[in-house]
């Protein structure tokens, strides 16, 4: 009964926070509420017995997305301050834009209510007991090379999805780079406390990432969680004013960026040649292959997330290495 009450409260809490985040009059407040919403989501994942998702949500969903949003808002603020013509863009005075008559708003709300009712009915009508693919996963877990079923699905049973996902990450960086850099902002002096904090926290984050990567084979954790924690360490370093040297921005950066994708492609070709089957690992080697893939993917994910943050926060420009300023 207590659990029931807790879950109900959590469900309503999520809806309430989402509503507040989406409709608060101040954009900064909206983003902070959104981050709080992400943390509450992580709690929901724990309640739903999904610790792997909870870790990913806390690190990526709330943490890095939140950092990206805040950095973008800061840039937007600085940008529209300089630009007198755009002064109206930020902050938006009222949450609700004047667009749309009462009639069309009413119609929209009617439509949305109908669709939520339809969805709720569809969900309600599903059978209350279903095992999905859990039996199939359990039956083949021993051949997968890892003991954590989620890692087994991500890196082995549905490893092809994960391969394409590494490409999506790479594509996001390419897309951001192809937009070209933003105008450089004068860098603000960094608070001493942040600098000390990041000095202290970075090794902790690196250790945590290594732990998550290693333990992911048999317990909650894995490449994405480890990569995002490592990426968070990078973000923290960037926030404290650290910038990689220009030399590092070239080859080493590109190599780290493509390591995960490249490993998947090479392994794909290798398995196709040797096993005549795309991404089929020999059972005896599966554990080692997955660890190798995950390690390289972790590096790529971390570098990708840090680059994305740098591009949004300081207008990093590809090649020019303008970000180097210390």
């Amino acid at each position: 009964m207590l659990q029931w009450a807790f879950d109900t409260m959590l469900g309503f809490g999520l809806l309430w926070l989402a509503w507040r985040a989406l409709n608060s009059s101040d954009l900064f407040k909206a983003i902070v509420l959104f981050i709080a919403f992400g943390l509450l989501m992580a709690l929901a994942w724990v309640r739903l017995n999904a610790p792997d998702v909870a870790l990913a949500e806390a690190a990526i969903g709330a943490g890095l997305t939140g950092a990206l949003l805040l950095a973008a808002l800061a840039r937007l603020g600085a940008m529209t301050d300089q630009n007198v013509s755009g002064a109206s863009a930020y902050p938006v005075p009222s949450a609700q834009p004047p667009a749309g008559s009462h009639f069309s708003r009413g119609l929209l709300i009617l439509l949305l209510s109908a669709s939520v009712a339809g969805m709720a009915y569809a969900i309600w009508s599903l059978p209350s007991y279903a095992t999905g693919l859990s039996m199939d996963v359990a039956a083949h877990l021993d051949d997968s090379g890892v003991g954590n079923p989620v890692t087994a699905v991500l890196l082995n049973f549905r490893g092809y999805d994960t391969m394409l996902e590494m490409m999506v990450l790479l594509l996001a960086v390419l897309g951001v780079w192809s937009l070209g850099g933003l105008q450089q902002q004068p860098e603000k002096p960094v608070a001493a406390v942040l600098e000390t904090l990041s000095r202290f926290l970075t090794p902790v984050f690196i250790l945590a990432a290594a732990y998550l990567l290693w333990v992911g084979a048999d317990a909650p954790g894995g490449a994405f969680q480890a990569g995002s924690v490592l990426g968070a360490a990078g973000v923290l370093l960037l926030l404290s004013g650290w910038r990689p040297r220009v030399r590092l921005m070239q080859w080493p950066l590109r190599l780290a960026l493509t390591a995960g994708a490249g490993a998947f492609i090479l392994l794909g070709l290798l398995t196709l040649l040797l096993e005549k089957q795309f991404l089929t690992y020999p059972v005896a080697q599966a554990g080692r292959m997955i660890l190798l893939l995950e390690s390289l993917a972790t590096v790529s994910i971390a570098v990708t997330l840090a680059i994305l943050f740098l591009s949004v926060s300081s207008g990093h420009k590809e090649k020019s290495g303008k970000g180097e300023k210390k």
């Binding site: 739903l48 017995n49 999904a50 792997d52 998702v53 990913a56 949500e57 990526i60 969903g61 095992t131 999905g132 693919l133 859990s134 996963v137 359990a138 079923p149 989620v150 087994a152 699905v153 991500l154 049973f157 549905r158 999805d161 994960t162 996902e165 999506v168 990450l169 994405f224 994910i301």
Partner: peptide, 15 residues
């Protein structure tokens, strides 16, 4: 027992 397949899908989705 929890079905791990949707968990993996959601991690993919979050990324």
């Amino acid at each position: 027992t929890t079905d791990p397949v949707p968990h993996a899908m959601v991690i993919t989705g979050i990324v």
